[in-house]
Nucleic acid binder design. Structure first.
Lengths: 266, 266
DNA sequence: GTTCTTCCTCACGTCGCGTGAGGGTCAAGC
DNA sequence: GCTTGACCCTCACGCGACGTGAGGAAGAAC
């Protein structure tokens, strides 16, 4: 049953009827948006039926997403164009929805990139990623490196890379492979200028997937040599190329003050 | 044309490259999200290429709607599940979109109510609003009272009133009309108990459209008598009813201490 | 030397409340 | 009349991601 008198409600009672918190009514009171028309001797807010009517209107417009200032205008200023205000709010909401939908698209894109690597439709993968591309590679790579910070950066960049970007990377990778083969054919030796140059090109190229330090490059060289799949790739280009590349990377690292024997990822 | 040295950028330069404000970089610095790795002798922030790489990642994730804390985690904590974070964000965004779409519906509803009155499909209007309903009435009423505070309240309530609500109002209005006719038939006179009772029912009924004070009711009574359309409606029910009702309202007002001759809308 | 731009560090404002802190008031049971 | 528990009051800070000056130093161009 009601406290105080019968047609005056306290904040708590008013709040319960309206489905808002007491704090909210305090706030609306402080802002002058909806004040109780009376106070008890002890200073308690007393809301009359008329106050409740006004509060209901506030609640209604608040549920439409209007700001307190706008609501204040709608309730107090009869010259204000309510329909215009509502249309404006509607337009803003529409725009907001649109922005969020764009954002959803980008999020999906980024998730895809994390889960599946290059974002290129299956039908264009061979065209864009080269003839030797194997659709299973991203899954394998993710299983192996998906937990690393580098995979994360790779995915971030993949999410914003257009197919043309992938083509370019593919082309440059194939060029580098070709130049590596020619260098070995021409008798280049790990540690010589030509080898060092190629190693640096390799590092720069990989840094477009994620920042590759020289230490990390050393580790990558070891993977090339020891991992059957990588070794097979390079050795197919030129027998012994995997080992040659690993040694070339080691020599280049040494040249830049990095000890390949103690190099660690990260 | 860089200031300071060549591979260190000042805040302004970094901000321009990233498409963010200087203040934003200050903020990210203060929060520890992305700090310049050096300062000049004068205390100027100097961003290196590595700093810019990090900043770019921050910008990227910020564009996905992630909070700075989440971004901080993604950049610094390699154990954090990036994909899970993204999925969570995506779910939140989806929910947000859904809420906004609901809100858009309510806004459309409210705008309709302001512009067209009762929100009942044309095919159900006669069923819901009674046989005598004229589809032109809302437009006429809006032309006449659309600028008043009462129309606004009427529209607000109309927006949330379901067809059943309209039926009920229609039924009660028809009941009141019938009781008025019967009262006049039975010889009731303005100012007697039965008349006062009916006037009070009328006021309560109208107050379900918008709060109707006794002063306003007096004005309404005059409209009933002087406006041809309203007068025709009541006089068709019973000749002279329009005038009878106006007088009954006047008497009731007097009884409640309101002088009908000086009564004003508002 | 002067002026214009850019930089620095506080520090308050935004929006609609949530969440205590510290302390009165009300209604009821003993 | 006293306690207890629910309710009320008024500050006042916190949130999130910066915007927007205020007041002053440093850099670059004339």
């Amino acid at each position: 049953m009601s406290r105080m008198t019968d047609d005056q409600l306290t904040v708590g009672q008013a709040a319960q009827r309206l489905g808002v918190t007491v704090r909210t009514l305090h706030h609306w009171d402080a802002e002058g948006l909806a004040q109780p028309s009376a106070r008890s001797a002890a200073g308690y807010r007393l809301y009359t039926q008329a106050d409740l009517d006004r509060l209901e209107r506030v609640v209604l417009y608040r549920e439409l997403g209007l700001g307190l200032n706008a609501i204040c205008g709608l309730l107090d200023d009869p010259d204000m164009d309510a329909v215009a205000t509502l249309h404006e709010q509607s337009a803003q909401t529409e725009e907001h929805i649109h922005r969020l939908q764009q954002l959803q698209g980008s999020l999906r894109n980024m998730i895809e990139a994390h889960e599946r690597g290059p974002l290129v439709g299956p039908e264009r993968q061979e065209e864009v990623l080269g003839e030797g591309w194997n659709p299973d590679w991203p899954a394998q790579a993710r299983a192996r490196w998906g937990h690393t910070a580098q995979w994360r950066q790779y995915a971030e960049r993949a999410a914003v890379r257009a197919p043309e970007g992938w083509s370019e990377l593919t082309r440059e990778t194939e060029e580098l492979d070709g130049d590596l083969v020619r260098a070995v054919d021409d008798g280049a030796v790990p540690g010589d200028a030509r080898a060092n140059d190629l190693v640096e090109r390799h590092r720069k190229l990989f840094s477009r997937y994620f920042p590759l330090t020289r230490q990390m490059q050393v580790c990558l060289g070891r993977v090339y040599e020891s991992d059957p799949a990588f070794a097979a790739h390079y050795d197919a280009l030129h027998p012994g190329l995997a080992m040659w590349l690993r040694e070339a990377i080691d020599e280049s690292a040494r040249l830049h003050g990095v000890d390949p024997d103690t190099a660690s990822w990260e």
